[in-house]
Design a protein around this nucleic acid. Sequence first.
DNA 1: CGTGAGGTTGATCGCTTTCAACGGAGGTGG
DNA 2: CCACCTCCGTTGAAAGCGATCAACCTCACG
Lengths: 226, 226
Amino acid sequence: MYANANVIEPTTTSCRELPWVEFQSNQQRVHVYSAREALFCEGDSAQFVYEVLDGVVCCYSLLSDGRRQVLSFSYPGDLIGLVQGDSHRYNCDTLCPTQIRCIPRNMLLRTAHERPEVGEKLLTFATTELAAMQDHFVSIGRKSAQEKVASFLLTLAHRHAIEPTGSVTLRLPMTRADIADYLGITIETVSRCLSKLKIAGVIDLPQSATVVIRDVDNLRDFAERD
Amino acid sequence: MYANANVIEPTTTSCRELPWVEFQSNQQRVHVYSAREALFCEGDSAQFVYEVLDGVVCCYSLLSDGRRQVLSFSYPGDLIGLVQGDSHRYNCDTLCPTQIRCIPRNMLLRTAHERPEVGEKLLTFATTELAAMQDHFVSIGRKSAQEKVASFLLTLAHRHAIEPTGSVTLRLPMTRADIADYLGITIETVSRCLSKLKIAGVIDLPQSATVVIRDVDNLRDFAERD
DNA sequence: CGTGAGGTTGATCGCTTTCAACGGAGGTGG
DNA sequence: CCACCTCCGTTGAAAGCGATCAACCTCACG
């Protein structure tokens, strides 16, 4: 999908250590998914933990009446499905063509038991995830729509460039609906906020899935004050 | 900050919860706090991990203009401050008189390295915390004010009675402002929603800090369908 | 009994949602 | 190759929910 685009790609900036754990076992497999395929659904038995090798996936919860809350977007190096209990509590879909390593959960936990450094890695992952969710809580709970959208773009920018300055080009593998359900607003509001940032000269939108951040510092102001 | 707090000898044990880890070391201490004291603040060096033995504490983030997002309420048995990195990323206050066990973080991590079952306990705690936060995301992001308040009461009820049925009495150690900042709404809205539940006969409010859930099933309807 | 913090309730405002129309990009089939 | 279709995104207008502003109440405490 973004293979031939001239933009920053998630895999090229991997400062993360891949893969998570080196196994001799042949129990783990790498699966290839196309866009908008389900990795697992709420209620599915949590036999595997999934590591994103390439592409992007999206975890989300559904209410009975169809309302959706996107919980996270996971990029290469991220781990998904490390749950407590035996079944998944949310759904997980790919957003674009994606490579996933499936690691049997009991094998991972057994390895963690035998090799302290693996357990530490898992704990590090979990606490890092917690910190990211805490930041997102502030966005969802206490920021205006405009601030939410600006913060979202900044978070993505930080993911792909450790210290973003000046101009940064981002590719958005997710739709406006995904962003809206992540930020707790509607697609129309996402669109309006992006337009406002464009009119303000803070970003550019050459295509709907490509955002050029023209001024990171200016965007930062929008993320916490406008 | 807690240096001049009243220190109880490590031999003192809580009647409510087993301690997370039994140490021979005298490095860990139990501290007693009164209501509305700070355990730590954003930016403080994260030297300790804290276990609530008795009482309730509240973790929160602040935006530069004073807006606040409460991240969690922690009850006896809960662990606080298990962060990645060397400094705390949020603030933590007691809500009422509280006993806290302070565990040196490097000691806890060293123990986890040496004893797999301790590492597993930490990981279990982190993944349980993640699951709770995911549920809360749905509340904050996609529920109406009325649903948020009803969900909040249900979550508290589940905390204190595994399978709440019929009538449940809850004591709220947090103020309306704490609840509002937890749910991403205002104190006036919290108050109005509670009043609506009272008028509907779902709850009773003998005092402002005491909620009697008269019909848990009915409350459950309010929590996801208004 | 005065005081102040926390809580409730009412009235109004404004941001976001909802409803609706339109535009553009990509895919398909004639 | 082009007409057509559908999905996604954008923009406008109106409606509604929760925020804001304000008054009053309740209770603990000195």
